[in-house]
């Protein structure tokens, strides 16, 4: 990979300053960024590590729900959210593999917004708030298509606030090589209605399956969606599955997530 200057600030303020330089790129767990840099597809001049900032670490209940620091490891979310938000814990505990979970972070995942990543589904279905050094962004505004987010240049995610649903579940169908989601569905039953977020399936990245949300808000049972169909238009088609196959998985996995929700 190309060489770069490495900096590791210990406060958000210093990180913001470092990110203001030309050619600066934030580094969190690096589990996607490093392979990308090895392929020379990313060539930052300065890499700003966000892993040494205590105020971006940790999982706790707070105002608005469960607060997860942006640099919190997947393994930490899996452990520390187990009692507080079990479906989120399950999701975090199923990302990649153990070594990836010991390094990867929620903030890195959300900033990258890979169309097959797990966390975007949790954030969108939970109706979470993405907190940055500048502002708070509602999940529905945050995701703007494959690898695209509402973040401005130099803006750093500092935490995510998850309202904890009454019931929720995440069901993931693995892409067998990468272990990303071939398709995965996060179903969350909130007091105000059900949200269903799908990752891995669409060319536009994570999305809400609103027909299912309506049906499930009226009747939170797997049979409530049995009459629905998922339009394969715009679904990802690749070696691992056609658009029609992914559309099928959206429905099958949604049903299973509803059945598993607790």
């Amino acid at each position: 990979m190309h060489n770069f200057e490495f900096v590791k600030p210990s406060t958000i303020a210093d990180a913001v300053k470092a990110m203001a330089q030309d050619g600066a790129q934030a580094l969190s767990g690096g589990q996607t960024l490093l392979p990308t840099m090895k392929q020379r597809l990313a060539q930052p001049e300065t890499l700003v590590s966000l892993t040494g900032i205590p105020e971006m670490q940790g999982v706790c209940m707070g105002e608005g729900g469960l607060h997860v620091g942006a640099a919190t490891l997947h393994v930490t979310v899996a452990q520390d959210a187990k009692a507080l938000y079990p479906a989120l814990s399950t999701l975090a505990g199923g990302i990649g593999d153990p070594a990836v979970r010991n390094r990867g972070t929620i903030g890195g995942s959300l900033a990258n917004n890979d169309p097959a990543a797990c966390y975007p589904a949790a954030v969108l279905a939970s109706g979470a708030t993405v907190v940055t050094n500048k502002r708070k962004i509602a999940a529905d505004d945050y995701f703007q298509g494959m690898f695209t987010t509402a973040l401005d240049d130099g803006e750093i995610i500092t935490s995510v606030i998850f309202p904890v649903p009454q019931k929720a579940a995440y069901v993931k169908f693995n892409q067998p090589a990468s272990r990303f989601a071939l398709t995965a569905v996060f179903v969350a039953k909130h007091a105000g209605g059900v949200r269903v977020a799908v990752t891995g399936a669409s060319n536009d990245g994570v999305f809400r399956w609103t027909e299912a949300e309506t049906a499930l808000s009226a009747d939170f049972s797997p049979s409530a969606i049995s009459g629905l169909t998922v339009d394969p238009t715009g679904m990802i088609a690749d070696l691992h599955g056609t658009a029609a196959y992914r559309a099928n998985l959206v429905k099958v996995l949604t049903g299973r997530a509803v059945a598993a929700a607790h």
Binding site: F6, G30, Q31, L34, S49, A99, N102, R103
Partner: peptide, 19 residues
Amino acid sequence: CVVHLNGRAVKSCTVFAQD
């Protein structure tokens, strides 16, 4: 390339030494 970093298994090819 898995090694233990502060007691946890990580892929050492996906970690910068300076980090």
